[in-house]
Design a protein around this nucleic acid. Structure first.
Length: 954
RNA sequence: GCCCGGGUGGCGGAAUCGGUAGACGCAGGGGGCUUAAACCCCCCGAUCCCUUCGGGGGUGUGUGGGUUCGAGUCCCACCCCGGGCACCA
C-alpha cells in the first residue's frame, strides 16, 4: 500500500479497528438488551419497556463445521437493519439468535473421529458465533439458546409431555388435557370401546384405551433397518437401489413401534388460519397443497355373490371427491398392495374373459402375483415417467350401490395405497386417469356430466370432462350442477347406508421418532405391559447417556432394529415411583427429530431463564401479542405472533407447519396467548456465485480461476466453463465473511449485501463489485472527517435551502424504504444524497452530517457509531432517533414536467406543482418544439395531471 | 401435466397509484489533479437516422395482439427461465 495514502482514510484497517472497538463497547454496555415487561430480564436502564414492542427473528442456523460463507448472513443482516431502524423509530425490539444444534452431522462426525457430538457441536457454535459477532449484529445475547442445552431441551420434553397428555376433542375443535377424557370415561359420559365400566378396567387396560386418543401416540411404521451399520437410516440416507448411502450395505424395511403426532387433527385449523398470516401467497399455497384437503364421500361397494364365498362377504370402500359421478362408475381399482386383494382374488377367470385383462396369466392369482412383482421392481422414477396405464383383473365384480350395476374389479399401480382408502371407483367419463385406463382395457364410458357444446364430444377422440355442468344419465341427479349433485348423492348414500360424506387430507400424522443418538430423548418409560407412561415434569430433563460406543456393530439380516440408545444398557432401564410404588421401567430408546427443537425456540427467546414455567406469561403476551403500532397493522387481524420472521424458502412446509401445530396445541392448553407463532414471514433469496468446471465436469476452486467471459476462463492454465449456482462447498465457490472483513470491513460487507437486490431475490455474488459499497462509505467519511488529521470537519453554518430539500426528500424516501425492507433503494437514495453533499462546496453542515449518520446507522452501525461519537452525539447512535422529514421541504416550488403531444414527449416545462391547467397549457405551448408539433392543428383535448405531466391531443 | 414467481443496457438492479424507461452501483470510455501511476474529483454511456452541432426524429422493457390521450406497469394468446407439486381419486 502506498505510504502517501491519507492516514485517516476509511479503509479496511480503519474499519477493523473501529468495528471491533465498538462491538466490545456494545457488549460491555448491554446496548442491544431488550427489557421484558416482567419477570427475568426486566432491567430497563434506558426506559424503553413501555414502548410498543417488535419481535424480530431469523430462522436459526445449524452450527455446521465448515463455517459460514457470505450467503448465510444475508437474512441476518436484513433483520438487523430492520431491528436497528425500528429501535430508532421508537420500538422496544427483541432480536437474538440461537442454534439448532441437534442433528445428524455431529453424530456422523463422532462415528468417524470419536469426538463426542457435544464437544463437536460446542466447537462449531463457538466458531460460528465468532463469525457472526464480527458482523455487528445487534442481538440481545442474553437470550441466545441452543437446542442442545439441557435447560432448553428439558422444555422440549415438557412440550412432548403436554402433547402426550392431551387429546383432540372434535366437538370443541381443540386439544384438551387427557385427564378430562378420563373423567368422561369415569363418569360414564363416554362409553369405553368394549362397553365395560371404566372402573372395571385394569389400570393397564385404562392406559391402553386412553392411548388411542393421545396427540402423541405409538404406532407401528416401517423403518429402514441397516444391519450392516447396526442402525436405522433416514429415507435420504438410503440409495435408490435400497442400499445404505454410507458403506453400501443392504437396507431392509422393518416395522418398528414409533412415535406419531396427531397433526392431522389440526388440518382444518392449520388451513383456515393461513388467512390470518402475512406470508407470501406461494408459501401459503405450498402449505395448502401439503395439507391437501379434499371433500367427498366414502362409498361402499358390495362384492358380487357369484364371486365366491370368501369374497362375497366383503365390501370395498372407496374414497371419491366426485360422488356425483357415481352413475358413471364402470369399474373399480384397488392399489396392488391393498390388503383386500388376497381375499378378493377369484380362483379362476371366466371362459370369456377379455385377454387384455389377464396379462396372459392362467388364473387371477397368477396375474396378481406377476403384476405385483413387476410393480415392486419399478423405481419411483420409473413410475413417475411411465404413466401408461397398466393393471390386471381380479376375476371378481362388485355392485354399484346406486344402480345395481355389476362392475369389474382391477388392481393397478395408478391407485396409491397411501391416499384415501387405497381403492377407487373409476369414472372414465369424468376423470382423465380413469379415461386412459378404460381406453387401454376396453371398459365402458358413461357421461354423467353434460360437457358444454364446444367440448369435443366425439368418442373416443375427446377425453374426460372434469368441469361443471348438468348431471345426465344419473337418475334422480339429472339436471343438477356438480355441487348440488354431490350434496344430493351424499344424502342418498347416508340414507341408504351405502356411504358417508367424508373429508380426506394428504397430510399424514407426523412420524416423530428417530433411531438416533444426537437428539432429545423421548421422556417416556414403558411398564411391564408395554404401555407408555410419560416421565413426570419434575423429573425432566431426561438427559442423554454420555457413554456411547460409536463403533459400527455388524448384525445379520434377521436382527431386530435397535436404536443407538439401546446400547446404553444401564441408562435403558430406570427405577421410578410413578404413583404405585418404586418399580423398574424400560426407557423409550428413540430421540426426537431435529424439527422438535426448532418448533418453539421463539418462546424461549422471550424468557430463556425461568425454570418453573416454559415462558413467563406477562412477557409472552407482550412479545407475542398483536402490536397495533408495529407498522404492519394493515393486515393485522389479531393472530399475533412474531412480528417478522425471515428465513429460507426450504422451510416453507415442514418446519413452519410443525411449529404452527405445536403452537396451536400450546394455545389450546393455555400456555401461549396467540393462535399463530409467526405473524409475518419473509423468505430471503440466496446468494449465487459463479462456479467453474474442468473438462471432466469436476468443480474447481472458483477463487483460483483466471480470465473473463470474453477471453475465456482458465484454472491452472487449462480452460474451464462457467455456470452459476447457490454458493456452497459442493460448487467450490464459497467466499467467506472473514475474507470480506479483512479486505473491506464488516460495514462494507453489510452494505454490499443489502444493496445488491431486494431481500426476497436471489443475487449473484461479485467480489469485485464490493468496492462500490466501500467507496460510498469512504465518501461519507470524507464528508465528515478530515482524512489527513482524523479530526471532525463539519461546519456549524446553516445548509443551503437546496441541500435541505435534498436531505428531507432523502429522509422521507429512506424511511419508507426501510419500513418495507427495500434496503437496495434506501441505499441508492443515501448515495444520491451523499453525492449532493460532496458536490456542495465547503465543509458539510453539521445538521446534514447528523442526519446522514443517523440514517446510515442501521446499515453500517460501526461507522455510524464512530461518526456519531465524533459529532458529539449523546449516548449510542443505536438509541438515537431516526430523522423525521419536514413536510415543508418535500414540496418543490417548481417541478419539471414533460409535455406530450399525442402521447409523445416533445418538450419539458418548469411549473409550480399546483399550477392550474391554463397556466400549464400556456407554458407548454410556449415551448418551441411543442409549438412546432401542434402548429396548424386544432387542440382537441388537454390531459393535465398537476405535478406529473401534460398531454395535448390535436 | 398442474400451481406459484420472473423475463428491463455488457452486468446487478430502479421506475411503489397507468404519467419523463434505464435511478444507484459494477465494468467501460473521456477529462482534471500528478513528473508519473494509484487514490480522488468531474463528465459520457440503449439503438438507428437527420443536423445549420442548438438540437430534431424513428425504434426500444421476452414475442404477437388489445384497452387507453398515454402501457415496463392493465387484459388476451404464446415463448423462455427459476421454484414447488406430480397418477392424491
Amino acid at each position: 500500500m502506498a505510504d502517501d495514502m491519507p492516514q485517516h482514510r476509511y479503509d479496511a484497517e480503519t474499519a477493523d479497528e473501529l468495528e471491533t472497538r465498538w462491538q466490545a463497547q456494545w457488549l460491555a454496555d448491554g446496548t442491544h438488551h431488550a427489557p421484558n415487561p416482567a419477570g427475568h430480564l426486566a432491567d430497563d436502564p434506558l426506559g424503553v419497556a413501555d414502548r410498543p414492542k417488535l419481535f424480530i427473528m431469523d430462522m436459526f442456523p445449524y452450527p455446521s463445521g465448515s463455517g459460514l460463507h457470505v450467503g448465510h448472513p444475508l437474512g441476518y443482516i436484513a433483520t438487523d437493519v430492520y431491528a436497528r431502524f425500528k429501535r430508532m423509530s421508537g420500538f422496544n425490539v427483541l432480536h437474538t439468535m440461537g442454534f439448532d444444534a441437534f442433528g445428524l452431522p455431529a453424530e456422523e462426525h463422532a462415528r468417524q473421529t470419536g469426538e463426542h457430538p457435544r464437544s463437536n457441536t460446542e466447537n462449531n457454535i463457538a466458531n460460528m458465533t465468532r463469525q457472526l459477532d464480527r458482523l455487528g449484529l445487534g442481538h440481545d445475547k442474553r437470550r441466545s439458546i441452543a437446542t442442545t442445552d439441557e435447560a432448553y431441551y428439558r422444555w422440549t420434553q415438557w412440550i412432548f409431555n403436554q402433547i402426550f397428555n392431551a387429546w383432540f376433542d372434535p366437538d370443541a375443535g381443540k386439544a384438551r388435557p387427557i385427564a378430562e377424557l378420563e373423567a368422561q370415561f369415569a363418569s360414564g359420559e363416554r362409553t369405553t370401546p368394549d362397553g365395560r365400566a371404566w372402573g372395571a378396567l385394569s389400570p393397564s387396560e385404562q392406559r391402553s384405551v386412553l392411548h388411542d386418543f393421545r396427540l402423541a401416540y405409538v404406532s407401528e411404521a416401517p423403518v429402514n433397518w441397516c444391519p450392516g451399520l447396526g442402525t436405522v437410516l433416514a429415507n435420504e440416507e438410503v440409495t435408490a437401489d435400497g442400499r445404505s448411502d454410507r458403506g453400501n450395505f443392504p437396507v431392509f424395511k422393518r416395522p418398528l413401534k414409533q412415535w406419531m403426532m396427531r397433526i392431522t387433527a389440526y388440518a382444518d385449523r392449520l388451513l383456515e388460519d393461513l388467512d390470518l398470516l402475512d406470508w407470501s401467497d406461494s408459501i401459503k399455497t405450498m402449505q395448502r397443497n401439503w395439507i391437501g384437503r379434499s371433500e367427498g364421500a366414502e362409498v361402499r361397494f358390495a362384492v358380487d355373490a357369484a364371486s365366491g364365498d370368501a369374497a362375497s362377504a366383503t365390501t370395498i370402500d372407496v374414497f371419491t371427491t366426485r360422488p356425483d359421478t357415481l352413475f358413471g362408475a364402470t369399474y373399480m381399482v384397488l392399489a396392488p398392495e391393498h390388503p383386500l386383494v388376497d381375499t378378493l382374488v377369484a380362483d379362476a377367470y371366466a371362459d370369456n374373459v377379455n385377454p387384455a385383462w389377464t396379462a396372459g396369466a392362467a388364473t387371477p392369482a397368477a396375474a396378481v402375483a406377476a403384476y405385483r412383482a413387476r410393480v415392486e421392481q419399478m423405481t419411483d422414477v420409473d413410475r413417475q415417467e411411465n404413466k401408461e396405464k397398466t393393471g390386471v383383473y381380479l376375476g371378481v365384480h362388485a355392485t354399484n350401490p346406486v344402480n345395481g350395476e355389476s362392475i369389474p374389479v382391477f388392481i393397478a399401480d395408478y391407485v396409491l395405497m397411501g391416499y384415501g382408502t387405497g381403492a377407487i371407483m373409476a369414472v372414465p367419463a369424468q376423470d382423465e386417469r380413469d379415461w386412459d385406463f378404460a381406453m387401454e382395457f376396453g371398459l365402458p364410458i358413461i357421461r354423467t356430466v353434460q360437457p358444454p357444446a364446444d367440448f369435443d364430444d366425439a368418442v373416443p377422440g375427446d377425453g374426460a370432462y372434469v368441469g361443471d355442468g348438468p348431471a345426465v344419465n344419473s337418475s334422480f341427479l339429472d339436471g343438477l350442477g356438480v355441487e348440488d349433485a354431490k350434496a344430493s348423492i351424499i344424502e342418498w348414500l347416508e340414507a341408504n347406508g351405502s356411504g358417508v360424506g367424508m373429508v380426506t387430507t394428504k397430510l399424514r400424522d407426523w412420524l416423530f421418532a428417530r433411531q438416533r443418538y444426537w437428539g432429545e430423548p423421548i421422556p417416556i418409560v414403558f411398564d411391564d405391559d408395554g404401555n407408555p407412561i410419560s416421565i413426570p415434569d419434575e423429573h425432566l430433563p431426561v438427559n442423554l447417556p454420555e457413554l456411547i460406543d460409536w463403533a459400527p456393530r455388524q448384525l445379520d439380516e434377521d436382527s431386530e432394529p435397535e436404536p443407538p440408545l439401546g446400547r446404553a444398557t444401564e441408562w435403558a432401564t430406570v427405577d421410578l415411583d410413578l404413583g404405585d410404588g418404586m418399580k423398574t421401567y424400560r426407557r423409550d430408546l428413540n430421540v426426537m427429530p431435529q424439527w422438535a427443537g426448532s418448533c418453539w425456540y421463539y418462546l424461549r427467546y422471550i424468557d430463556p431463564v425461568s425454570d418453573d414455567v416454559i415462558v413467563e406469561p406477562t412477557s409472552e403476551r407482550y412479545w407475542m401479542g398483536s402490536s397495533p403500532t408495529d407498522g404492519l397493522a394493515e393486515s393485522d387481524e389479531g393472530a399475533g405472533g412474531v412480528d417478522l420472521y425471515v428465513g429460507g424458502v426450504e422451510h416453507a412446509v415442514l418446519h413452519l407447519l410443525y411449529s404452527r401445530f405445536w403452537h396451536k396445541v400450546l394455545f389450546d392448553l393455555g400456555h401461549v396467548s396467540t393462535a399463530e407463532p409467526f405473524k409475518r414471514l419473509i423468505n430471503q433469496g440466496y446468494i449465487q456465485a459463479a462456479a467453474f468446471q474442468d473438462e471432466r465436469e469436476i468443480y474447481v476452486d472458483a477463487a483460483s480461476v483466471e480470465g473473463d467471459a470474453q477471453s475465456g476462463f482458465t484454472f491452472d492454465g487449462t480452460p474451464v466453463t462457467r455456470s452459476f449456482g447457490k454458493m456452497g462447498k459442493s460448487l467450490k465457490n464459497s467466499v467467506t465473511p472473514d475474507d470480506m472483513y479483512a479486505a473491506f470491513g464488516a460495514d462494507t460487507l453489510r452494505l454490499y449485501e443489502m444493496s445488491m437486490a431486494p431481500i426476497t431475490q436471489d443475487r449473484p455474488w461479485e467480489t469485485r463489485s464490493v468496492v462500490g459499497s466501500q467507496r460510498l462509505l469512504q465518501r461519507v467519511w470524507r464528508n465528515i472527517v478530515d482524512e489527513q488529521t482524523g479530526e471532525l470537519a463539519v461546519s456549524d453554518d446553516a445548509p443551503s435551502e437546496e441541500l435541505l430539500r435534498a436531505l428531507h426528500k432523502t429522509i422521507d424516501g429512506v424511511t419508507a424504504d426501510m419500513d418495507n425492507l427495500r434496503y437496495n433503494t434506501a441505499i441508492a437514495k443515501l448515495t444520491e444524497m451523499n453525492n449532493e453533499v460532496t458536490k456542495a462546496a465547503g465543509p458539510t453542515p453539521r445538521v446534514i452530517a447528523d442526519a446522514m449518520v443517523r440514517m446510515l446507522s442501521p446499515l453500517v452501525p460501526h461507522m455510524a457509531e464512530e461518526l456519531w461519537s465524533k459529532l458529539g452525539g449523546a449516548g449510542s447512535v443505536v438509541w438515537a432517533h431516526f430523522p423525521v422529514a419536514d413536510a415543508s421541504y418535500l414540496v418543490d416550488d417548481q417541478v419539471e414536467l414533460p409535455v406530450q403531444v399525442k402521447g409523445k414527449v416533445r418538450g419539458r416545462v418548469r411549473l409550480a406543482p399546483d399550477a392550474d391547467e391554463s397556466i400549464a397549457l400556456g407554458a407548454a405551448t410556449a415551448d418551441e418544439n411543442v409549438a412546432a408539433h401542434i402548429a396548424g392543428a386544432e387542440i382537441r383535448k388537454v390531459i393535465y395531471v398537476p405535478g406529473r405531466m401534460i398531454n395535448i391531443i390535436v
